[in-house]
Amino acid sequence: MKLTLRVWRQKNADADGAMSTYEVDGISPDMSFLEMLDVLNEQLILSGEEPVAFDHDCREGICGACSLVINGDAHGPERTTTCQLHMRSFKDGDTIDIEPWRAAAFPVVKDLVVDRSAFDRIIQAGGYITAPTGSAPEAHATPVPKADADFAFEHAECIGCGACVAACPNGAAMLFTSAKINHLNVLPQGAPERETRVLDMVAQMDAEGFGGCTLTGECATACPKGIPLMSITSMNKEWLRATRKAAKR
């Protein structure tokens, strides 16, 4: 396959960026999107140019490091991570636009790499349990109803990639934050911090400068892990409950 790539190039956080056009040839439909970018980078290095910086780690769709907006879609046209997107989703001769996640809370570090540490600070605000850890306890020691376990698992799937923020017209982190809150709030292990968790994580999310939810649903459409939009509804419910309880105290 022969492709024209229009890639966002930006020297550093303070520099202005712009789209640069490159041609790549000999791309196999079985290559992943990141392997295609590797080919481009080899080409750039050989011609003495600066390679394109992009984030990646596991290349297995589980770490959440990869992050590209491809033709206007976070993680590209398929519902998967960029590393699990294959070139067969494109046609020979296509022009592909590649941009970084765009949100005030995710500043561009270089080219396609953005700083997602705002997510880490949201987790630090309450995305944990205070129970003593150690070796895994006997699974039957704390019974969890099947429905709750399924709900927790569904939300635990979030890999923290930030595609939800990238896709949201308001740069909101509601889907990520709600997935993390719901995952722990429904379980007995997460019960002691049930109220402080939702209040603190939402407050941190606001402090990071993410936008608010207008229930557009773009986040859930972009999410490679299928976190449902209704996850935000559950978070709102938890937030209202915690606010009422805090007021009574």
């Binding site: 789209m19 206007g72 636009d97 949100a103 936008g211 773009e218």
Partner: peptide, 18 residues
């Protein structure tokens, strides 16, 4: 106002949304 500030730069590749 907050939502607009949270998304200061637009994508070059635009898509009709929502």
């Amino acid at each position: 106002r907050r939502d607009i500030e949270a998304r200061p730069s637009k994508y070059v590749h635009k898509k009709p949304r929502a």
